[in-house]
Design a protein around this nucleic acid. Structure first.
Lengths: 198, 198
DNA sequence: GACAAAAAAGAACGATCGTTCTTTAATTTA
DNA sequence: TAAATTAAAGAACGATCGTTCTTTTTTGTC
């Protein structure tokens, strides 16, 4: 890894932590430069524009998300077990990744949902892909016969996402330590409602 | 209503629309002044500080929320009917209120969850109160015998909030017109799972 | 170790930020 | 309508924003 790539990675590490707490939209070149001990122009040169920096941060966040949430879940047995693993990883991923303020993609989803442009496109694509991954896992659990055949996989994914967001808000804004527990209760109710008769 | 109050209200009207699309944190005195056709200093004088302006916007948003979501639902029969009304109003309230970018409180909840201060406090209090209102409605539906006695009202409120957030994201970021429909399906599944045996 | 290439710093730009003054205009009260 | 009060404008402030230059330093290659 060349020196350039190395510092770029160091910048992104710091940027992710910062974006986690203040959001992607509020990321400023100056603040990030100060955090990394660089000059504004030196840091700027790595991206060429603020927008490119935001895109790089989101791509990095997505890669980490996949590495911490999606890929580890593939080791779980295909079907309901894997779906449970995906959900559990989804709930805890920011803590494991030392992102002190929650998921940057989730933050960006709110900041850019009314702001057309490349950043919004990347965020929307990321969430769409993730929804599809969840729905695929649900369908696998239908194929194994664990979930009912008339299960609506997209609806299932929709509800999982909702539980995750409620958990996030309950945990981060309302400071309720029971948030994760509530999330699991909600998830298991969702599963039970779609369980195939044994 | 004096001239001062009148323009202050006009400012808040515009501020809410703007906050709906760009968020409460991104609200700037200058942009708001331009939108209302006022000078920066003239507008500024109505609040005294940016933070006070943000607080005023959030208080105004909450008041409208209560006026569009909560109070109308009180006309529905106490119990499950009222709970359904609360949920339905919750889903559609920003459209009815001509807030083109969704709920400003919801936006602020994400922007300020890691930013201690009066704004965060107001947002957190608002969400807590709303959760409590939902839980109260659930308990009323238990008293009427419509919902099971062992229903966890706080858990119920948690899940309603999740459905609402998933709906918001599905609608606004993913541009899926089925979002509201999915939300209602999720809600009715939630209700059915807690229905008392007839 | 010399040389080319890459990385970082430094300085400056116009713009906008929140805020503070002073001055003018509009409104309310007497 | 005159006076007193309030509302709004105007100008300026230091700070920060993203970005563009030029210059210096560091890195990789022969």
């Amino acid at each position: 890894m060349s020196k350039g790539e190395e510092t770029r990675q160091a910048i992104l590490d710091e940027a992710l932590m910062l974006a986690s707490t203040i959001g992607v939209a509020a990321l400023s070149i100056g603040a990030l430069a100060e955090r990394t001990g660089m000059s504004k122009s030196g840091l700027f040169a790595h991206f060429g524009s603020k927008e490119e920096m935001q895109l790089a941060v989101l791509r990095e966040a997505e890669e980490r998300f996949l590495g911490v949430v999606f890929r580890p879940a593939l080791r779980a047995p295909k079907g309901l077990g894997r779906l449970r693993a995906l959900f559990a990883n989804m709930i805890t991923w920011t803590e494991k990744s030392e992102l002190p303020g929650g998921c940057p993609i989730e933050a960006a989803a709110h900041e850019f949902d009314d702001k057309p442009g490349p950043v919004r496109d990347v965020v929307a694509a990321s969430r769409t892909t993730w929804r599809r991954s969840l729905a695929d896992a649900v369908r696998k659990a239908m194929e194994t016969g664990e979930l009912r055949q008339d299960t609506d996989a997209e609806q299932f994914a929709f509800e999982i996402d909702g539980i995750s967001m409620a958990c996030h808000q309950t945990h981060r804004l309302l400071n309720d330590p029971d948030a994760d527990h509530r999330a699991h209760i909600a998830f298991e109710r969702l599963v039970r409602d779609h369980l195939a008769k044994e």
